[in-house]
Simulated assay, not measured.
Amino acid sequence: MTALSVDTTPRGVAVVTISNEPVNLMTVPVFLELADLVDDLAHDEAVRAVVFRSAQPDWFIAHFDVEAILGFPADQPTPTELNTFHAMCEMLRTMPKPTIAQIDGRVGGGGSEFALSCDMRFATPSAILNQPEVALGIIPGGSGTVRLPRLIGRSRALEAILGCDDIDARTAADWGWVNRVLPADEITSFVDRLADRIAGFPAHAVAEAKASVVRAESGVERDLLDEGAAFNRTLGEERSQQAMRRFLELGGQTAEGERRLGELAGEIADT
């Protein structure tokens, strides 16, 4: 069963809708489907812009599946090439066409890192962003520690990453985590108009302009390799295993638990 649907407009805007009830959890199958689709869209010359949105009004993508992370091997070698998640995120950042995330509701962990890797992010007032990983004994290992400091600055990135608390949409916009906050009844038309506008411009100029901006972000791949190595090191800690199991016991990955993700992260620390 697919979690993704794609509609392409006459001008070449590919609109990807994500649906994995109840909270759009990024399970391994959903991730693999996303990675394949991102690669296809990047290399499809008929696609001039890409928009990601959710079929679930309360969630964009909750986060990566913690049960799956618990099963990751702890003795992985130091990476010398980007892992598959990092490669997908870099494809979003570097493909020669704009990538836009429309964030309705909550986005956290690997879902937040997916959105961070897009060129632009637009949110509704009800959107909540969170990087809960440190509370679970790991780090944001899907590009969060690399992208957030570049996007919002060192101090705010540390507040988000170390604090593991919910960041409301208005604060995220003030910080630069999202481009702007738009009313729920206006965001889709705004994003569609922007994507269609860009798709109508000469494709070679769009590609060259984006590539020039990407070149200004130096050292990203090197930093992603270091982040991957650091993430792998955390997996070997028994305290990480305990924290992730406690997260699931407290209601993580259920709709009720995910609605209070910031509070839940604090409860892990308390126990």
Rank of each mutant, 00 (worst) to 15 (best):
M1Y: 03
T8M: 06
R11T: 10
R11D: 11
R11H: 06
G12F: 00
V13Y: 01
A14L: 08
N20W: 03
N24W: 03
V30S: 04
F31S: 02
F31I: 00
E33R: 11
E33L: 11
A35C: 07
D36Y: 08
D36I: 04
V38H: 06
L41G: 05
A46F: 01
F52T: 04
D58W: 00
D58N: 03
D58Q: 02
W59H: 04
F60D: 00
I61K: 00
I61R: 00
H63E: 10
H63A: 03
D65L: 04
V66Y: 06
E67W: 08
G71T: 09
F72A: 04
E81Q: 05
E81F: 02
L82G: 05
N83Y: 02
F85C: 10
H86L: 02
M88C: 03
C89W: 03
M91G: 05
M91E: 07
L92I: 08
L92M: 13
L92Y: 02
P96C: 06
P98K: 03
I100L: 08
Q102A: 03
I103N: 06
G108C: 14
G111I: 07
S112Q: 01
S117V: 04
S117A: 15
S117N: 12
C118T: 15
D119R: 07
D119C: 08
F122M: 10
F122C: 09
P125M: 13
P125D: 13
P132K: 13
E133L: 14
V134D: 10
A135I: 14
I138E: 12
I138L: 14
I138F: 13
G141N: 02
G142W: 07
S143Y: 07
V146W: 06
R147G: 03
P149N: 12
L151Q: 15
L151C: 12
L151T: 15
L151H: 08
I152Y: 06
I152R: 09
G153H: 10
G153C: 13
S155K: 15
L158T: 15
L158E: 15
I161L: 15
G163H: 15
D165K: 13
D165T: 14
I167S: 08
D168R: 14
T171N: 09
T171H: 11
G176D: 01
G176W: 00
N179V: 11
P183Y: 11
A184E: 12
A184K: 10
E186I: 06
I187P: 03
R193P: 00
L194Q: 02
L194G: 00
A195K: 00
D196E: 07
I198S: 00
G200I: 01
G200Q: 02
F201Q: 12
P202M: 02
A203K: 00
A205R: 04
A207W: 01
E208G: 02
A209N: 01
V213M: 05
A216F: 04
A216Y: 04
E217W: 09
E217H: 13
E227V: 05
A229T: 09
A230K: 11
N232K: 14
T234L: 12
T234W: 12
E237V: 13
E238H: 15
A243I: 12
M244W: 11
M244E: 11
L248A: 10
E249P: 04
E249N: 03
E249H: 05
G252P: 08
G252F: 08
T254L: 06
R260N: 11
R260W: 07
L261D: 07
G262H: 10
E263C: 08
L264E: 04
A265T: 15
G266W: 09
G266R: 10
E267D: 13
A269D: 11
T271C: 09
T271S: 09
